Simulated assay, not measured.
Amino acid sequence: MTDPDLSDLGALVAVAQARSFRAAASLRGVSASSLSEAIRRLEARIGVRLLNRTTRSVTPTEAGTQLLERLMPALGEITGALDALNSFRDSPTGTLRLNVPIIVAQRILPPITSRFLLAYPGITLEVSASDTFIDVLAAGFDAGIRYDESIERDMIAIPVGPRTQRFILAAAPSYLAVNGTPQHPRDLLDHACIRHRFASGVIPNWEFERNGKVVKITPKGRVIASTAEMGIGAAVAGLGVVCTFEEYLSEALQSGQLVPVMEPWWQEFTGPRLYYPSRTHMPAPLRAFVDFIKSPEERTLART
């Protein structure tokens, strides 16, 4: 039996962690077929099936599980050893993999990462945008960005981007001219509300707070959008009241296509946070990113 190629072993770990050739390929920036070929080549060299494949899932066999238990710590040591070499360079190198919410990927992260990549030309950035909660480390990411309520307490979390954000409500002037302007959350029960459905299938209620009083409503309406753009488009067309991140609505408000509704009830909340495990040997690209967003210059920009 010839010795397996290290890259083939890395492919096995990636596919096993992602439980999918397509997801692993997206994370590694390669094709799913190349990963499939790497696994076939590895199994042929070892002479043992390592992964069970179906049309719906990919799971390690008993032999694959046993190999992965010994292989993953060893590959981690190799990665750590290579990361340690970054201290001998003027600037760290490597790939930083982040999993972030869609709003962060679209409206918050781009200017931050642009400045970061200009400061660190040796680092490659991979960003996966999803509103679905996952175990980012098990999925092969170095870190994630989420909001406070969805961050595990055993993680280190630091602010990234704006320190506060708001959910705001808006509607088209044409809609309000016909249906009137709601003043209280209860008024929304008599209005067409443009709702949002997450990838998980959940359609959240709308929650408001003012002077310590919390009001929750179950909005009703004919439009259920899966993206912010779809919901805003429906609102601009005069189909109802939309409630979403202020960053999404700012352009439509500035142009007059939408007008603010129920401003005293707009919800303010803590901005997003970068989170990662408390570990001694942090990958050099992640350490560089953490140091970068904690720098006085970035903290100043975050507040503006």
Results as ranks from 00 to 15, higher is better:
residue 244 T to K: 11
residue 249 L to F: 07
residue 138 A to E: 14
residue 76 G to P: 00
residue 91 S to V: 02
residue 43 E to C: 11
residue 86 N to F: 03
residue 52 N to A: 11
residue 83 D to Y: 02
residue 282 M to R: 12
residue 5 D to L: 12
residue 131 D to H: 07
residue 95 T to I: 06
residue 15 V to W: 02
residue 287 R to K: 09
residue 5 D to I: 10
residue 300 T to H: 04
residue 144 G to Y: 00
residue 258 L to T: 04
residue 230 M to G: 12
residue 268 E to G: 14
residue 22 R to N: 06
residue 167 F to I: 13
residue 215 V to A: 01
residue 260 P to Y: 03
residue 236 V to F: 04
residue 27 L to I: 10
residue 282 M to G: 02
residue 175 Y to M: 07
residue 152 E to S: 15
residue 183 Q to S: 09
residue 181 T to F: 08
residue 133 F to M: 10
residue 135 D to E: 10
residue 207 E to M: 15
residue 134 I to E: 04
residue 205 N to E: 13
residue 257 Q to C: 11
residue 296 P to R: 06
residue 176 L to S: 10
residue 108 I to L: 03
residue 146 R to V: 05
residue 254 Q to H: 13
residue 81 A to G: 09
residue 244 T to M: 06
residue 77 E to M: 11
residue 264 P to D: 07
residue 146 R to S: 13
residue 201 G to F: 01
residue 115 R to H: 08
residue 49 R to D: 13
residue 187 D to L: 10
residue 106 Q to D: 15
residue 204 P to M: 13
residue 54 T to W: 03
residue 70 R to C: 08
residue 95 T to H: 02
residue 125 L to K: 01
residue 53 R to I: 15
residue 20 S to Y: 03
residue 39 I to H: 02
residue 302 A to E: 08
residue 238 G to P: 10
residue 176 L to C: 14
residue 62 E to G: 11
residue 298 E to L: 09
residue 16 A to E: 09
residue 49 R to C: 04
residue 148 D to T: 05
residue 248 Y to N: 10
residue 4 P to C: 09
residue 125 L to C: 02
residue 297 E to M: 11
residue 291 D to P: 03
residue 302 A to Q: 09
residue 107 R to H: 15
residue 72 M to K: 13
residue 53 R to N: 08
residue 152 E to C: 11
residue 244 T to A: 03
residue 32 A to E: 06
residue 169 L to A: 15
residue 46 I to W: 08
residue 236 V to S: 04
